[in-house]
Simulated assay, not measured.
Amino acid sequence: MNGSRHDRTGGRRPEPATVRFAFTPAAAYVRAARLVAADVAARSGVATGLLDEVRQAVGEACTRAVLRHRDRGLRDLVRVEFSIGDRFVAKITDNAQDLRARSGDRVGAGTVGGDARANDHDALEEDTLSEEITLIVLGGLVEDLVVTGPDADGGTTVSMSWPLPGSGSQSDH
Rank of each mutant, 00 (worst) to 15 (best):
A33M: 07
G10Y: 03
D172A: 15
L135K: 13
R43P: 00
W162M: 11
T9L: 12
G73F: 09
G166H: 09
A37V: 09
V46S: 02
G113H: 13
L35Y: 01
R72L: 10
L164K: 02
S161M: 02
N119W: 06
L129F: 09
D172H: 10
D86F: 00
D52Y: 01
H6V: 06
L164G: 02
A37C: 10
R31S: 10
D98L: 01
D105F: 10
R75D: 15
V80F: 04
L35E: 15
V58H: 05
F23L: 10
E125N: 07
A61K: 08
R43T: 12
A27W: 03
A47I: 00
N2R: 10
S103V: 12
E15H: 09
P165C: 03
E125Q: 13
D127I: 08
V78D: 04
A38L: 03
V142K: 01
S130V: 08
G49P: 01
I84Q: 02
R70C: 01
L129I: 13
D76W: 06
R13N: 05
S167T: 12
R70L: 12
G113E: 12
G113D: 13
V19S: 04
G149D: 03
E126R: 13
L51D: 08
H69M: 06
D86I: 00
G11V: 07
H173M: 01
A101I: 08
A47S: 09
A65C: 07
G110L: 09
G154F: 04
P16R: 15
G168S: 08
L141Q: 06
T18E: 12
A152S: 12
R72Q: 11
V147W: 05
F82K: 02
E132N: 14
D122N: 05
